[in-house]
Design a protein around this nucleic acid. Sequence first.
DNA 1: TGATTTGCTGAACAGTGTTCGGTAATATCC
DNA 2: GGATATTACCGAACACTGTTCAGCAAATCA
Lengths: 208, 208
Amino acid sequence: MGVTERRQREKEAVRSQILTAATELFVSEGYENVSMRKIADRIEYAPSTIYLYFRDKEELFSTIALEVFEDLTDQLCALEELDLPPLESLARGLRIYIEFGTKHPHHYRLTFGPMPAPQRLGQVQPCDTAGLACFATLVRSLRRCVDSGDVVTSNLETLAQSLWMMLHGITDLLIVSTTVPNFPWAEPDDVIDSSIDTMIRGISVRRR
Amino acid sequence: MGVTERRQREKEAVRSQILTAATELFVSEGYENVSMRKIADRIEYAPSTIYLYFRDKEELFSTIALEVFEDLTDQLCALEELDLPPLESLARGLRIYIEFGTKHPHHYRLTFGPMPAPQRLGQVQPCDTAGLACFATLVRSLRRCVDSGDVVTSNLETLAQSLWMMLHGITDLLIVSTTVPNFPWAEPDDVIDSSIDTMIRGISVRRR
DNA sequence: TGATTTGCTGAACAGTGTTCGGTAATATCC
DNA sequence: GGATATTACCGAACACTGTTCAGCAAATCA
């Protein structure tokens, strides 16, 4: 008597309606400018209904962000499969990261977004694990470079974090640059090329 | 009959009362968690009074941020006076930037903060000029490196922006790391050293 | 058919940034 | 000194936010 299963499906349908409506709004308007009422309006439910599916606005967003970031990790894992030369593979990974961020500006910025409210400070967010998985691919890629002798470092983990932080800065400011036209920004592609070049040169051993 | 001057002084006093109260609150609580009412309470004025001195909450904050950033520019200009070897001077400047950001986390993050509301997108913010002045010191420092032959680049402006973006990423994530303890962050000082080293190595010519 | 669970709603709460009409004290002018 | 104008400020209100909760229909089960 598959009635409970149908009910299950219906609930799932509403849930994904909420998610797609929220995604569209978040992407086009940005987190701050999207209210629960706007999301509810779009799917023709009462605002309070959303709270039957998500604890609060933040959980709703981080559910979306999570899916997007699993996408990035997938892309980086696919790159690993190609088995390119270590340094080249690393450089390609850096580029994928940056382009991913600029393609999903709101998701990206939200994940590294506003300071968490003090009361929620110690909690493990679902995004944390996704972020860790993503960071792990960078560590693996860098380790391959060390193994092949292209990179020498006293602390691989620290170096990986340095690279990631730089990567984040490039991504973040490229996003900012699209909304702040008063600054004499350089050509994005040039900046990306220049940055990746600097990073790779900065970590690779010097052969004469 | 210096009565108008006394009035002037009194107005100025109220204005700076607002600024110091707001600064304290913003620094300790963060922009989002500080309301105009809280600021007004602290100085024992009505919330609406603040609007006689500042157009809105954002202008109030950016006035504060502006002062802080002039501080940074001053520090970087003082560094120039020292006339250190170009590459060393550059490295010192990078470090000053990072440490400045981690010392004023809220001001820093707010300046590169949330996506501006669409309606305010094209306006020139007061911070923009301060940011430009700050960026200009980086360009000058880098140019000295090029002049001395320590750095070769086909586009100085682009390279400077790359460096700045990386710098921003390091600063930004160091700030984030203090509020997200669930990630296995490396030692901040190690990350800073490693990053600056990578950046300097990445841009400097290779001598054998 | 009657009882129970389910999914959803509408109203309400406490908070936000911001506006505006009014007021009381001060300074200016005759 | 007294009338007038200016000034600095306040309180109430508006429109909005995220969130909660008692209650209500409809679908399910017995």
